[in-house]
Design a protein around this nucleic acid. Structure first.
Length: 933
RNA sequence: GCCCACGUGGUGGAACUGGUAGACACGCAUGGCUUAGAACCAUGUGCCGCAAGGUGUGGGGGUUCGAGUCCCUCCGUGGGCACCA
């Protein structure tokens, strides 16, 4: 009876799904375990073998946890809003929902083939109105809350309006955008518009004129994490800075909590570090420099200790001080410069970062301590959006200030001790002491910062502050395929819909392009208005909106009155293990944390961190195959001569990618390759001799897995050839989960061989469809290995070392098949251990032992220590640290006995000639080392 | 430039708290079975050496009876940030 993986896998997949064996029950008396994969965007290309890596890992863990008696939530869904479907819609007129649905079907089919234990009844789809109703709801909640810095949480906006009508704007401790102060009387008489304008400065979801990343090619604005090097992450189109009225989320209010929260979650250090950088906390002081006009120019610095080294000041070009401080003589030049900086795209600005540019305003500030006159310059290396948009320049100790000073021949005054050539570079150090700095002299940098801050505060020159780099998240996109805002405008004032009016469904449009007036595609829906005839917001929400709280929806996916019921949220709690790519470090993973903290503040969720533990699975890279083609000669125009790798004489060839599916172990299937391209009919393939056979050998390279490099391997093809169990085992065997590694099929046969061997172990050559068992056929060494395996697999499972688990199974099958173990309970134990990895195989064999199904069996094997007790121990003898000999010894031997035995060894005697002896015995856990010094 | 992670055979990778480095697999070699191949089985395989032996976890140094593992330093690879004052 051969191992027919196709029949077996089809049968059990159908059995599991028809009997709904993976349905997750809530509530339950069992302890919970929530394992989540980052849900995919269902693209048109379908899955390649890299995608399932993480899903296989989580599936193994889910099955393991179920065997251990946990109630496991292991769902799957679709991050269905996104650009490709919309782009496709623009080109073909096909509604994105239609394409998306089609793609989801393909994905689901591909996933199901791998035997995953998802509870498909909990499937979510972010583009379905019943789902995005709750995305819209969360937005409305954010709109109606503000961030109270006293309570350090979001509070209803009603509290704020009450405060305003009692006290005006004074005394409020809240994260807000700049606005003029007002009294309670003024508040009374403000118009509706004016009141709303003020409130927008506080709302967590607010509208404001902000500098945004505008991508003309995509026709939309982008968030900071969607832009890289001045180009859009999706598509790589240029991005420019532009002031636009946009919806934003006040994520910056949560900066400190987002930073602190990292301390209590189990994430990889690198992701935490990325988030820390992204949040960018820096402590320092704001200091006022008096101007000749008696106004105060406020700057931010992290190095107040270097204040005596200030030789000039710099304003950002967009600073409001620019106009005030530019003298009439300098006006023309300054205007020219400002105009020039505005004309540059973000990309140009970054590319030319090394070129120092700037212009003198003509004005001077007064140094707060030395009272010297300090010139004020304008330069675009100072950013308007950070700190106060103005700096004190200390060229001796800041490389940017140094470069500027050198370019414009400004003085450089060292104020930190240390030998240094100030003509060439700045001395950027925290390890020195202050010099040339009056009251700071001789203090270490740390002390000097402290002292300077003290003095600044005492003299009322400024205050200590903390700045964060984290900016509020721009939340509008001028696109069609996204969640509509539950917002309409009445006298230009935004109003939100009520919960009963949700979901606000995407309207039908004739085209998916912006209108001729440049309005977003939704403006094409002419009749899209509220009952009262008010217009809706035409922007849609960005990609991260739908993915920020999807883990809550899985807990209660069909709930019509809440994103999930209170009981379900309380029962499931935070995600225990979250698995996905590290590319979401500063996007989704920050937004989801923020979103969760907000939902916590409003009392919906009891936890503040959504993902307790995060694992980033590595990417599976493609392994491309390349063949060599002779360079075309002038006569034939196109060369049709191809050369096997070993026969290549360099320089006269070029490399060409070939489809990896036509290559086996780097040997090209020449006939198939010729067939695949009509123009190769009469091509010539120069083979080489390999094992006495002529073959055509290809070269290879590790690259991204991509269609254009012909290195995409489809999991369906692997399932076809080897079966899902082999694919699962192989992907785990490939290497540690978190590491990136190339897809190299040369090892897959080894794994497949293992499954065959396992099958042959339990099946004699007969055609029986039952496994015949015999009692007492397992020898003590078999039991020992089995229990060692239980111990190892359990440990490795908990630490997610799946690759070593596979190796352990191979060791087992080698030994068990050699000693022909046929004991029923023995086999059963082994099958349970194996079932998370190769569920179909385990299930089939389990069935052949006379049982129904193993997947719901809550009995993870326990280690029986009696098999692991050692009667002997291995003694290693070392002489001066070098290994000389080893011997076995009774476990209860005394040190004296061991020592005596060691000295009797011929190797030791030889080593000890002419040496003095000093007895020393070390007894660590496993080995006993006798060391003779 | 700054921050983080990593560096072990021909290859992917094992090695828990410092305790015989190289498990397991691929590849390779030899032999068996076979008309032949595939599959399967057995044995070997870090490097140098016929051997005894020596040497060996990116380089150098340190701690230790003992270091792949801990500390310092240099080199290399991968990732992130990049005018954030």
């Amino acid at each position: 009876m051969p191992y027919n993986y196709q029949k077996i896998e089809d049968y059990w997949q159908r059995y599991w799904s028809e009997n709904k064996l993976f349905r997750t029950e809530t509530p339950s008396q069992k302890p919970k375990y929530y394992i989540l994969d980052m849900f995919p965007y269902p693209s048109g290309a379908g899955l390649h073998v890299g995608h399932p890596l993480g899903y296989i890992a989580t599936d193994i863990l889910s099955r393991y946890k179920r065997h251990q008696g946990f109630n496991v939530l292991h769902p799957m869904g679709w991050d269905a809003f996104g650009l490709p479907a919309e782009q496709y819609a623009i080109e073909t007129g096909q509604h994105p929902a239609v394409t998306t649905e089609k793609n989801i079907k393909t994905y689901k089919k591909q996933l199901d083939r791998l035997g995953f234990s998802f509870d498909w009844e909990r499937e979510v789809n972010t583009s379905e109105p019943s789902y995005y109703k709750w995305t819209q709801w969360a937005f409305i909640e954010m709109f109606h809350h503000y961030y109270d810095e006293d309570k350090d949480k979001a509070l209803p906006i009603k509290n704020l309006t009450e405060h305003f009508s009692k006290n005006g704007s004074s005394g409020i401790q809240a994260n807000h955008n700049e606005h003029d102060a007002f009294t309670k009387e003024e508040w009374q008489f403000f118009s509706e518009q004016k009141k709303e304008e003020i409130l927008q400065c506080y709302r967590i979801a607010y509208q404001a004129d902000l500098p945004v990343n505008w991508c003309a090619k995509l026709g939309t604005v982008l968030a900071n994490d969607e832009v890289s090097n001045g180009l859009s992450v999706r598509g790589g189109h240029p991005v420019e800075q532009k002031i636009m009225k946009q919806w934003s989320l006040r994520i910056s209010a949560y900066a400190e909590r987002l930073l602190q929260g990292l301390e209590k979650i189990e994430w990889s250090e690198s992701i935490k570090e990325m988030q820390r950088n992204w949040i960018g906390k820096s402590k320092g002081a704001e200091v006022d420099f008096l101007l000749e006009t008696n106004e105060k120019l406020r700057i931010f610095t992290t190095r107040p200790d270097t204040i005596f080294g200030v030789t000039f000041m710099v304003l950002a070009p967009e600073s409001e001080w620019v106009i005030k401080l530019t003298t009439s003589e300098q006006k023309a030049e300054v205007e020219k410069y400002i105009k020039w900086t505005k004309s540059r795209t973000e990309r140009e600005r970054q590319a030319e970062a090394k070129n120092v540019t700037g212009i003198f305003t003509g004005s001077y500030a007064i140094h707060p301590f030395t009272k010297k006159k300090i010139p004020i310059w304008i330069a675009d290396y100072v950013l308007g959006g950070y700190g106060t948009g103005a700096i004190m320049a200390v060229p001796a100790h800041d490389s940017r200030d140094h470069a500027f000073a050198k370019t414009f021949k400004l003085p450089i005054v060292p104020v930190v001790s240390g030998e240094h050539d100030y003509e060439s570079t700045a001395l950027e150090t925290h390890e020195g002491s202050a010099i040339n700095s009056e009251f700071l002299n001789n203090l270490s940098t740390k002390e000097a910062i402290e002292k300077a801050c003290e003095r600044i505060e005492n003299d009322k020159l400024g205050v200590r502050t903390t700045n964060y780099r984290l900016r509020d998240a721009i939340f509008s996109r001028q696109r069609f395929w996204g969640e509509p805002f539950p917002v309409y405008y009445k006298n230009e004032i935004p109003h939100t819909l009520s919960l009963s009016e949700l979901p606000l469904v995407l309207p039908e449009v004739d085209k998916y392009l912006p209108t001729e007036e440049g309005e977003p595609p939704l403006a094409r829906a002419k009749s899209w208005k509220t009952k009262e005839g008010y217009l809706y917001e035409y922007s849609t929400m960005p990609g991260f909106a739908g993915s920020s709280a999807y883990y809550l929806r899985y807990m209660d996916p069909k709930n019509a009155s809440a994103i999930a019921s209170k009981e379900n949220i309380d029962y499931w709690g935070a995600v225990d293990l979250y698995l996905g790519g590290s590319e979401h470090a500063t996007g989704h993973l920050i937004y989801a944390r923020f979103w969760c903290m907000f939902l916590h503040d409003i009392g919906l969720v009891p936890f503040t961190e959504p993902f307790k533990k995060l694992i980033n699975q590595g990417m599976i890279q493609g392994r491309s195959n390349l063949i060599y083609r002779m360079k075309k000669n002038p006569k034939t125009y196109v060369s049709k001569s191809y050369v096997s790798k070993g026969e290549v004489k360099e320089e006269d060839v070029q490399k060409i990618h070939v489809d990896v599916n036509l290559v086996q172990n780097d040997f090209l299937d020449v006939a198939a390759y010729k067939k695949s391209k009509p123009d190769l009919k009469d091509a010539d393939f120069q083979t080489e001799s390999h094992d006495g056979k002529e073959a055509f050998l290809c070269d290879w390279a590790v690259e991204k897995m991509s269609k254009s490099l012909f290195n995409v391997v489809n999991p369906d093809a692997v399932c076809e050839q080897y079966g899902a169990d082999t694919l699962r085992l192989f992907e785990m065997f490939l290497g540690p989960l978190e590491q990136s590694k190339p897809w190299n099929t040369s090892g897959i046969d080894g794994v497949h061989r293992f499954l065959h061997k396992l099958w042959r172990w339990l099946h004699d050559d007969t055609d029986a469809d039952k496994i015949s068992t015999t009692e007492n056929s397992a020898k003590p060494e078999d039991w020992k290995l089995l229990h060692q395996t239980i111990q190892k697999i359990t440990q490795d499972m908990d630490s997610l070392n799946f690759n070593t688990c596979v190796s352990q199974f191979m060791i087992c099958v080698n030994q068990f098949s050699a000693s022909k173990v046929k004991e029923k309970s023995f086999i059963e134990t082994f099958l349970i251990l194996l079932s998370p990895f190769a569920p179909h195989m385990a299930e089939e064999l389990w069935h052949r032992l006379g049982h129904t199904t193993s997947v719901t069996k809550q009995s993870w094997p326990k280690v029986d220590k009696k098999w692991l007790v050692e009667s002997e121990m291995k003694i290693v003898v070392q002489v001066n640290g070098k290994l000389r000999a080893q011997f076995m010894c009774d476990i209860n031997a005394t040190e004296a006995e061991i020592f005596e035995k060691a000295l009797a060894l011929p190797e030791v005697i030889k080593q000890l000639e002419n040496k003095e002896l000093k007895k020393k015995i070390y007894v660590p856990k496993k080995l006993v080392n006798l060391v003779v010094v």
